[in-house]
Write a protein that binds this DNA or RNA. Structure first.
Lengths: 170, 170
DNA sequence: ACGGATCGTTTGTGTAGCGCCAACCATTTA
DNA sequence: TAAATGGTTGGCGCTACACAAACGATCCGT
């Protein structure tokens, strides 16, 4: 119905409604739903969503340093300590001093950690079914692959943005 | 192919590494990165990630009631009030009393709201490029579509979980 | 017409997640 | 030997919520 909205100086007709297709907000939205649902099924296992994220990352990149972990997780180093304390207290994760640089802690999943992670993932299936109910199994599969690939990229680290000024666009 | 997962009980040698393919944690992880990046590019527009989510939802389901909004957003009704206050104060959104039920407020995007949303989405492109750098443009497109479909489902509302007992699995 | 339920709103309380700062040890590096 | 670095601890503060209580306006069933 409405939506004529074109106005704006010139700007020819444009059917608007194209809406840019930004996945950021959708990602946020879906992640929130998933997180809320996950909390309940994870609680019995003594884990919280953020623990799961950490464990998942640790499985993929074994023997990572704490500060590298802070990088990929994008949380402050001091908070990584607390997070790992939780996990280590339950024997899911192991801190060892690095041989080449004895200041560093090399973090890795223990056997029971890997096991617990699998259990959690399995329990998560329930939550996932609720949240991704609108998707076919095949679609969920490709979604998983895309997320996997997207997250496995380099830690984004800190603004490698040299002297860029990409603003003027738009 | 994969997914032999036999385990159970003894668990012989198991090559493990099969890992269940749960997208929950990945979703969480990716959303966090995106949110962190988005905050900075959104700030100049006076918006925060959560406002963007709300606006996005509002664009798709125009004329929604506040409590329905609370449902899709999965946040408490009282918090929706504050959220809408922010948006209405900037004229991005409009509350009107519903004609058929005058208790209800019908919320909808204003013209300037839609405009601001598009601007924000455009600005978001920068953040998205950083975060989704590992994906090809075509892949980002399918990701968007999947997220779109996944979020457009019914509000999940509250546990329509009748007398289900899907736990025993796993 | 009355009473109970419902929608939105306000106010207040509590909690969790997290950034950030400062101090401190152990270690590495210049 | 002096500085820089990785981890740890403790503390401060903010933001996002959830939850509860109370209120006005309104709807609805009897």
């Amino acid at each position: 119905m409405f939506r004529a909205v074109r106005k704006l100086g010139h700007m020819p007709a444009l059917p608007v409604e194209e809406s840019e297709r930004r996945s950021g907000p959708l990602l946020d939205h879906l992640a929130r739903r998933m997180r809320l649902r996950s909390e309940s099924v994870l609680a019995p296992l003594g884990l919280r969503p953020r623990h799961l994220v950490a464990l998942t990352v640790l499985r993929d990149s074994a023997g990572i340093s704490q500060q590298a972990l802070a990088g990929t997780l994008q949380i402050d180093g001091t908070n990584v300590v607390g997070l790992l304390n939780d996990l280590e207290a339950e024997g899911l994760v192991e801190r060892r001093r690095s041989p080449e640089d004895r200041r560093r802690h090399v973090v890795s999943l223990t056997a029971t950690g890997a096991k617990r992670l699998r259990e959690a993932e399995c329990a998560l299936a329930v939550a996932e079914d609720e949240v991704l109910g609108a998707l076919e199994p095949a679609e969920r599969d490709t979604l998983y692959d895309l997320l996997r690939r997207a997250t496995s990229g380099r830690p984004v680290s800190c603004v490698e943005a040299s002297g860029d000024e990409p603003d003027p666009i738009c």
